[in-house]
Design a protein around this nucleic acid. Structure first.
Length: 421
RNA sequence: CGGGGAUUAGCGCAGUUGGUAGCGCGCACGGUUCGGGACCGUGAGGUCGGCAGUUCAAAUCUGCCAUCCCCGACCA
């Protein structure tokens, strides 16, 4: 992509109505633009990040048997009345048509997926079943805030699992936990699996919490947690403050270390639905014995757009964002520093073409009327992990610099491509 | 939903005895620059959030409304 043609430019001053770090940085860098409170447009750079996050989530959901589908946003009022949530779900958007018909705007999709599953699930042979979607959700938050962290319209992945019994559900619940840990790691996030209340559905649930000052939740957790990751030993104690049976500075019930308290952003949660919805809608299956039983369900959510905001909150410095490689909008940011003639420009164009041919995603700052300093500042703000420079100084080499480091090296085209492919 | 603050050019802001609006950035054009947000010159860009009121005259005073932000409550 040539920066000169990119829709969405960087700006020096963030709009004064943005206070949250993620919203400020993402707006300045040209990733998002606010439409109304809690509702953001995703510009080309922002959409690329969103898609990268979605794809990682998608891969991990597919890996645990998830089948992707897409459910409707405009939903069925009758179904919501049936579950009682038409009146009890306090953040439900209700849209009224010209014919005075009311429609819920989907904040979650149990009311859609369960009646739908009823059309296909008849026998124990149809179970277990895992379906998910990545879709825009609507929640009429009384107060939208913190940029992408709490919006009224946001992108979310929701997976629903269907089982013959509790035991099978519990097995899958553990599988989902592992997938979640792996997925957050791939996104560069240390998401702490935290015990939380079960809301109206059950006694417990698990939230995935990323420690950050901007977080709205508070967790009491074992500091040894940070070191615990997939495949590595470590303590896994963490509870949401709301339900915590222990306090800060008390000793960890598992490993006796002193517990810490921190603000955190909830980037995902998983919880049992048991038979609440299947009973309401009559979702049953016939067992081997010929008897009808209610289907046991689980629900697994991840806030995709919230993750984008979370990553911006966690990975930044005074100059801008520092995207983890896995979600960066482009692999490299190529900068051309003008000379008097068009020699450098021509050479940089060639490098750009070669990189593209090699299948490398490159954002190419080809602007002829911007100073080197201006381009460097923009590159730092946008936060692509690798910066490349072609200038008079670089000769027949190309300068390589990581966004996260000061060190620069000079590589030949071949070395460069080898390193990136 | 309660409390507080804000709204003037694309963005950041200034604008008090009330006299029909200005600065910086950005943008356009010309020129000089060219490795950490360069410089000079010229220029375009505004129903001062909306509606009503007071006044000879309103960005400025009054009322109502809208929107945005923050704190709190809320957040299956």
């Amino acid at each position: 992509m040539r920066y000169s043609k990119l829709f969405g430019k960087t700006i020096k001053n963030a709009p004064s109505d943005e206070v949250a770090v993620n919203a400020k940085l993402l707006t300045k860098a040209g990733f998002i633009r606010k439409e109304i409170a809690g509702v953001y447009n995703f510009l080309p750079l922002g959409l690329r990040v969103l898609n990268k996050i979605s794809n990682i989530v998608r891969e991990e959901m597919n890996a645990i048997g998830g089948q992707e589908l897409e459910l409707t946003t405009l939903q069925n009022k009758q179904s919501w009345e049936k579950t009682g949530r038409w009146s009890s779900f306090d953040v439900l958007f209700k849209a009224k048509s010209q014919l005075d018909i009311e429609y819920p705007l989907g904040p979650t999709h149990e009311e859609v997926i369960v009646p739908l599953a009823k059309q296909f699930v008849n026998s124990y042979k149809d179970l277990p079943l895992y379906v998910y979607q990545i879709q825009t959700k609507f929640r009429d938050e009384k107060r939208a805030q913190s940029g992408l962290l709490r919006g009224r319209e946001f992108l979310m992945k929701d997976l629903y699992s269907f089982h013959t019994d509790e035991k099978d559900f519990e097995k899958y619940y553990e599988i989902a936990k592992k997938a979640y840990k792996k997925l957050f790691q791939r996104l560069g996030l240390d998401a702490i699996e935290t015990q939380a209340g079960g809301g109206t559905f059950s006694k417990f649930s698990h939230e995935y919490q990323v420690v950050a000052e901007a977080g709205e939740d508070e967790i009491i957790y074992c500091p040894a947690f940070a070191k615990a990751s997939v495949g590595k030993p470590g303590c896994h104690f963490s509870q949401n403050q709301e339900i915590a049976g222990v306090k800060e500075n008390e000793s960890c019930p598992i490993c006796q270390k002193k517990l810490a308290k921190a603000k955190a952003i909830e980037v995902g949660n998983i919880f049992p639905l048991k038979t609440k919805f299947s009973e309401t809608f009559g979702l049953t299956y016939k067992g081997k014995d010929g008897k009808e039983n209610p289907v046991v369900m689980g629900c697994y959510g991840i806030g995709i757009s919230r993750l984008m905001g979370t990553i911006a909150e966690v990975y930044n410095d005074e100059k801008g964002i520092i995207w983890p490689k896995s979600v960066a909008p482009y692999q490299v940011h190529l900068i051309m520093i003008n000379d008097k003639g068009l020699r450098i420009k021509k050479r940089a164009d060639e490098v750009y073409e070669k990189l593209q041919k090699a299948g490398i995603e490159v954002l190419y700052d080809d602007r002829e009327d911007v100073s080197a300093g201006g381009k460097f500042a923009d590159a730092d703000l946008i936060g692509i992990p690798v910066r490349l420079v072609v200038s008079e100084k670089t000769g027949d080499k190309i300068e390589w610099k990581k966004r996260s480091e000061e060190k620069t090296e000079f590589l030949s085209e071949e070395e460069l491509i080898r390193r990136l492919v």
